[in-house]
């Protein structure tokens, strides 16, 4: 069957027990801390913490393996690109230059550049587990409720969660259409030239759009007939009420954010400089 990426993974764990809104707030704080800070000490602490949280969530690495591999590939690409476009960024930031290997003109390998790129990679590693955890431990029904709770209009929140929900359906439909087109001789395999393949995919996209439009009409009628959009506010059946652990989590998240910003900026620079 179609690979189900980023779908909810049901476990009994402290992370799952938290309300979706709590997780969303904590995730936003967490990623702001990771985004704003280049302080290696802060990032390392956050990294260790995120590994720990991942551990207690009881989600297995292989369950999110595909997405993780995808992100890591992207990270690698990102690192290569940074080096190609700005090989002296580290030197500029840290003010010293410890050359390890000379390559060509400005393309040398400095300790500063390595350290800078290590920091960037670390940022990824702080944010990725948190982001993935938020997605795979929040039940899709609760997803919209948590967006709404932090102030997003419920119509928008619902659209977002509906869109997520239809991804598997659309994958399935895509497969059905692709197979019926292949039967008529439309080749999507590597035997065909790239340009021809792209053109061939368009014969699938057209029916896919048509059937998606049909689906949208049915759902929007069904929703309107059951009173969606009538009031300014609505309640949520699967919203988890806030418990003590939710408050504690949010307080910890806020403290972590404040603390990491204090440590990062106390000397007026976002960077921790081990070279002076």
């Amino acid at each position: 069957m179609a690979v189900e990426m980023l779908s909810y993974i049901d476990r009994k764990s402290p992370v799952h027990a938290l309300s979706g809104a709590t997780k969303l707030i904590a995730f936003l704080m967490w990623s702001s801390a990771a985004m704003l800070s280049y302080d290696t000490r802060v990032l390392l602490v956050l990294f260790v913490l995120s590994i720990y949280i991942f551990k207690i969530s009881q989600v297995k690495i292989r369950e999110i393996g595909f997405v993780l591999a995808f992100i890591l590939a992207f990270l690698l690409l990102n690192n290569v690109a940074i080096y190609i476009f700005s090989p002296q960024e580290g030197v500029k930031i840290y003010g010293t230059s410890h050359v390890l290997i000379e390559i060509v003109s400005r393309y040398n390998l400095t300790l500063e550049q390595l350290f800078y790129q290590f920091n960037i990679t670390l940022k990824y590693f702080v944010v990725i587990p948190a982001a993935l955890l938020f997605i795979v431990t929040t039940h899709p029904s609760e997803f919209a409720a948590s967006l709404n709770k932090i102030g997003v209009n419920y119509k928008i929140a619902y659209s977002v969660s509906l869109a997520f929900r239809y991804i598997p359906d659309i994958q399935r439909e895509f497969r059905i259409i692709a197979q019926s087109q292949q039967a008529r001789g439309i080749d999507l395999s590597r035997n065909e030239k790239v340009w021809k393949r792209v053109k061939n995919v368009s014969t699938i996209v057209f029916p896919l759009i048509l059937s998606s439009l049909e689906r949208i009409e049915v759902v929007s009628n069904a929703m309107e007939l059951r009173g969606f959009g009538k009031n300014k506010k609505r309640s949520w059946y699967s919203e988890k009420p806030f418990k003590q652990r939710d408050y504690i989590t949010i307080i910890i998240a806020v403290l972590l954010l404040v603390l990491s910003l204090l440590i990062t900026f106390h000397d007026g620079s976002r960077f921790y400089n081990p070279f002076i």
């Binding site: 029904s141 009173g227 009538k230 059946y237």
Partner: peptide, 27 residues
Amino acid sequence: GQFIGLSVGEDIAFVLENDGVPQEQMN
């Protein structure tokens, strides 16, 4: 096509949610 909720309970509750019925009464 007409299912909106993901579980039986959630789908049945959809109208009540839109009316803003409190969770306890909804259940």
